[in-house]
Design a binder for these strands. Sequence first.
DNA 1: TATGAATGAGCATTCATTCAT
DNA 2: AATGAATGAATGCTCATTCAT
Lengths: 200, 200, 200, 200
Amino acid sequence: MPPESRTFIEEARRAQIIQCAIDVLATEGYARASMARIAKQAKISTGVISYHFGGKRQLLEAVISEVAKMATEMMVPRILAQPTATEGLRAYFESNLEFMRVHRRPLLAMVEIITYTRDGGGPGPYAQQHDTAINDVMRLLEWGHRTGEFRDFDPRSMAIAIRGVVDAVPARLIQDPELDLDLLAREFVALFTLATRRQP
Amino acid sequence: MPPESRTFIEEARRAQIIQCAIDVLATEGYARASMARIAKQAKISTGVISYHFGGKRQLLEAVISEVAKMATEMMVPRILAQPTATEGLRAYFESNLEFMRVHRRPLLAMVEIITYTRDGGGPGPYAQQHDTAINDVMRLLEWGHRTGEFRDFDPRSMAIAIRGVVDAVPARLIQDPELDLDLLAREFVALFTLATRRQP
Amino acid sequence: MPPESRTFIEEARRAQIIQCAIDVLATEGYARASMARIAKQAKISTGVISYHFGGKRQLLEAVISEVAKMATEMMVPRILAQPTATEGLRAYFESNLEFMRVHRRPLLAMVEIITYTRDGGGPGPYAQQHDTAINDVMRLLEWGHRTGEFRDFDPRSMAIAIRGVVDAVPARLIQDPELDLDLLAREFVALFTLATRRQP
Amino acid sequence: MPPESRTFIEEARRAQIIQCAIDVLATEGYARASMARIAKQAKISTGVISYHFGGKRQLLEAVISEVAKMATEMMVPRILAQPTATEGLRAYFESNLEFMRVHRRPLLAMVEIITYTRDGGGPGPYAQQHDTAINDVMRLLEWGHRTGEFRDFDPRSMAIAIRGVVDAVPARLIQDPELDLDLLAREFVALFTLATRRQP
DNA sequence: TATGAATGAGCATTCATTCAT
DNA sequence: AATGAATGAATGCTCATTCAT
């Protein structure tokens, strides 16, 4: 059902359920984020979730969409506004960690879903999310190669490293809620500025 | 039951069950690694696992211990044998990725357990594993600071970055089994050599 | 609510819903004929069905009534128009199978409801439908006994056989939609003409 | 799992569960024959059924197999022992109704499963059961055609009629437990003897 | 009259664990 | 030491029904 055809009340319920799903996922973890627990959090019956989303899978997809939309809206314009690839990379780290600071719980919820949703063996249904992220970084790096700002390195390897560094933060955040994200951002920027710049 | 008081046969059974648990975890994923499946793989009854390990949690802990021991035995001597912190860091990346290449399945099994086992609320029972790893890296970095090889950076942030890069590899490995680990190792070494060295 | 007191619009809605219920039952089967599916077919809300019929049971009863009425209107005059019991029996088979040919979907819908609706313990709520059908046949057979056209047989047993043969056809029709109903009718007529006629 | 490799106790449990499933199916009907109800009847947990049969589908298959085996063992030898097709047909009716008399509840259970198990639209997984039955009757009829005992008729139509008559009995049996099956058998035999014999 | 939203019970299934043998 | 059998709770899901608007 496309969003336009949804009633106001339906939209509100969906938003409420998504919010509760995020809460449960972020605080209890994927394993405990059952329909029953999410419904309880929302003080509704489990049937309501099925009614509005069709099933658990679709609910999780809606959570992913929601958070991804938030992240995209916050980060993409900031990165694209930069005049050079080096500053684009700086903005990439800064806006990523800024997003984690501002929307910590939605971010954690999304990470839970992405990492836990694997049928076994192969990659899960959100693996492409990761692939897309890596490809985005690669495009950023190739920009720097084209302009000559960056030294010669394998863009894929560097992209994997960059995503690895970014993805490491949420796990640390769970471990240590007091983690200084601004410090981290500055250090990561310095790290990759030195690692990517054309060497003198 | 402490290892010394275990009979030879008991020890053999434990090893067999751990091996089968690794197999199932690596090929089927955490979600499908039920006691029944592991028992079936080992061609024994589920009760035997409970008998020897007490429960599923303890079995998974044993798997973690086993793989961590393998990794430590393989990596630590190689790193400590290096004359400088810079070369220690190089050995850190090389031996980590070498371990992934040689013991891919145990590594994947461990990753499955660590990422999937979070009781909710705080960090999971294996978070200390991660903490230990980060502290090890920090000691390596402080060595470089003491000798003056490394530029001035926040050791904790850099350690988080290094672990993030290393931890990103297994996920990529699941996605793309043909991943060139040697290339990755070379690129990571170059990356962090440039990022940590005292700047000219 | 008695039919006379229903408004025209109400009557139209009921007819529409009954038609949609028949469609769903005939094409999807009883198991998938949920209120939601029927409502969707009618492009209305589930509440409307409850509003007009009171509940699912009453809707199904209305379907049964409707189809039974159609069948009666089509068959009874044709049978009663026959001059002899033997020809009445022939008309019974012919008009029954003719009804199946012309109103296949309503017939299948009715069969679905009758066979699937048994509350357990005793016979289902539509057992009387069956009883009525058998009694009708028995009256036809007793007519033939009175006139001396038929040999001496137990009317009840013969009626059960006749209904059994007729009721076997819908199941075959589901299995093989290409079933030749005219051939069947001819064979059934021959069969029971020989089986009921006064023996020489 | 083949029967030989099952332990005595396993076999006993299976038999007990099958018996309870038959009881529930025969007295409560398919719609109420849930795993929970069958388990309750057997005074066990629902998990036991899954443990021994794998799932509901397999349990129902086991019930079908069991009853079909009973029926085959009772009827086939009796029918094959007859010297002529006419007497074979007589034995067919007699042994069918004898089975219904002796094993009424298993028979009803099987009928429930066969009629209720349809996914909608097409025929259910046990439709072949019906097909097989009709083909068996057709072979019997063709025997009579070869020997010249039977008049010229379409074997398929006659087989459908015969099966229809036999299948009509269980439904009547539910309706009227006092039904005289011996009378029915005699009448059916007379009916089809007259209907199939070479006409003078 | 009609709607969409919500309920709550019931469904089959999976699973770690327990225990008598 | 090991087995197979059994438990009971939890999971996602479907459905007829109810009700305020």
